Amino acid sequence: MTVTRPERPTYVLDGRPITDREAFYTALGAALNGPGGYYGSNLDALADCLHGGFGPTPPFTLVWEEAGVARAHLTGTVRLGERRLGYFEAILVTLQAEGVAVELR
């Protein structure tokens, strides 16, 4: 007997306009829920969204186009658990910890 598993849905995040944190959450909301969509406004809200009720729940794949723009602009450090991370890295850790496969391009 062959068991088939549904493929992970894939969403594409356009990273070109991500020059600050607000722009990241606006772009992520649009990528996951369509224009004007919401999917968090800070790291805590992002984690809440990943647990359901605000759009897709993991597992899914996020293809982050032009990720270098966000990496250059999402600076500053935040505490995530016991670790201090750059904001861009904290986003990646939060997504991946909840089962989102992130492909940076």
Rank of each mutant, 00 (worst) to 15 (best):
T2S: 13
V3D: 14
T4L: 11
R5H: 10
P6C: 03
E7A: 15
E7D: 14
E7C: 10
E7R: 12
R8K: 08
P9N: 05
T10R: 09
G15K: 08
P17T: 12
P17Q: 07
I18E: 04
I18S: 06
T19A: 05
D20N: 15
R21W: 05
E22I: 01
E22D: 15
A30I: 03
A31G: 07
A31V: 07
P35Q: 15
G36Y: 11
G36S: 04
G37Y: 12
G37V: 07
G37T: 07
Y38C: 04
Y38T: 04
Y38I: 00
G40C: 07
S41M: 05
S41V: 10
S41E: 15
N42W: 13
N42I: 06
L43E: 09
A47D: 15
L50A: 09
G53H: 02
G53E: 04
F54G: 00
G55T: 03
P58A: 01
P58D: 11
P59C: 06
P59F: 11
T61V: 14
L62D: 01
L62Y: 12
W64L: 02
E65K: 03
E66M: 02
A67G: 04
L74K: 02
G76V: 12
T77N: 10
R79D: 10
L80D: 13
E82N: 11
L85Y: 14
L85A: 09
L85N: 03
L85Q: 09
F88T: 00
I91G: 02
I91C: 01
V93W: 13
L95I: 03
L95G: 03
G99M: 12
V100I: 07
A101P: 00
A101S: 08
V102S: 01
V102A: 02
E103A: 07
R105N: 15
R105V: 13
R105L: 13
